[in-house]
């Protein structure tokens, strides 16, 4: 095995045992269940998650307060928010497929929200931000993150890209969309009235956030626990338990019966697909970095890793 899956202590396929959470979950309800458990146990005081318009209507004081145009929140625009209860977790559940700057709340969580122990969910790049913040905390004063949950990520989309994909390509109104999903080589849009539209991923590529194309991490190598649907059967999620903290939280959550699991070796398509996609991402983006090095005539674009 190469380095494409990062360091991990264990890997399983899992699903939440909480039927109510599962109803609202993207896949196996892993993130919501982990945070619900960590909140109950006092491992965290609150968690930073990607909420939305409906969440903001219900819990405005739990959302980021900046100039992010909160007067008019469009359907499916993520709003970073702090959750401290299971009801709030459920209200924020589900993947949004566009940018949610969760790290923007990381300092605010200790200030306005008074959290000593912060949980956070994010993409691999956001996990990188969390770890940079712990080793090089230029401005993150007294920020303590006992549980960082990373999600697998091939690339992300700006809000306007999702608008374009759903309303133009899939010809659906965003407000009528119940769920979005990327899987089986397609971008799926599920309508509230039961209609399903699928777009080939090829269509989506030009709408990807360019900043994603220098990212060399598919499975959130720097999270305590990382999770994503890839590798597991429908309704289940693949889990990598990575850090000591992650190991301890996962063991406690398992002991408390929060999850049912299957060995990753026993499920289809299994780690083989995760490895394949991780390598695809890393190879493609290394090529981007190489191309950036000779982008102009004797002039390079900047490489953040050097």
């Amino acid at each position: 095995m190469g380095a494409e899956l990062g360091k991990y202590k264990s890997c399983v396929s899992a699903r939440s045992t909480d039927k109510e959470l599962l109803k609202h979950a993207q896949d196996g309800g892993i993130v919501s269940s982990l945070f619900a458990f960590a909140l109950d146990e006092g491992i965290i005081d609150g968690a930073i998650v990607a909420a939305n318009k409906e969440f903001y209507a219900k819990y405005p004081s739990k959302c980021i307060q900046d100039n992010s145009n909160l007067d008019v929140i469009e359907p499916w625009r993520p709003i970073p928010a702090i959750v401290t209860t299971k009801a709030e977790l459920i209200a924020a559940a589900g993947t949004k497929y566009n940018l949610s700057p969760n790290i923007a709340l990381l300092k605010e969580a200790t200030r306005s929200f008074g959290l000593d122990k912060i949980g956070i969910v994010g993409t691999p790049c956001q996990m990188q931000a969390v770890r940079k913040a712990s080793l090089y905390p230029f401005g993150f004063r007294d920020v303590n993150v006992p549980l960082a949950v990373g999600i697998f990520c091939m690339e992300n989309f700006p809000y306007q890209s999702i608008l374009q994909l759903v309303e133009d390509h899939a010809a659906m109104k965003l407000e009528s969309v119940k769920k979005m999903e990327i899987g089986k080589g397609k971008f799926w849009v599920y309508g509230k009235r039961g209609q399903v539209v699928q777009l080939p991923l090829k269509v989506t590529h030009k709408y990807e956030q360019p900043g994603c194309h220098v990212c060399l991490d598919y499975v959130a190598n720097m999270a305590d626990i990382s999770t994503g649907s890839v590798g597991s059967p429908d309704g289940w999620s693949t889990i990598f338990v990575r850090s000591k903290i992650g190991d301890s939280v996962w063991a406690k959550a398992m002991a408390a019966g929060c999850f049912e699991t299957q060995p990753i070796e026993k499920v289809k398509p299994g780690l083989e697909l995760v490895t394949k996609l991780a390598n695809e991402k890393i190879t493609k983006n290394k090529a981007t970095l190489d191309a950036r090095a000779t982008f102009g005539v004797g002039k390079a674009l900047r490489n953040p890793y050097l």
Binding site: I64, D66, N67, S68, N69, R77, P78, P80, N98, L99, S100, P101, N102, I103, A104, L105, L106, K107, E108, G122, T123, C125, Q126, Q128, A129, K132, A133, F138, G139, F140, N156, P158, Y159, Q160, Q209, P210, G211, C212, H213, V214, C215, L301, R302, P304
Partner: peptide, 23 residues
Amino acid sequence: GLCMGCGSCAAVCPVRAISMEYG
């Protein structure tokens, strides 16, 4: 072309000069 919208900059700005607009 490197920004991926994590929000670190907005979080650490001591004078709140940075906000995250559409990520």
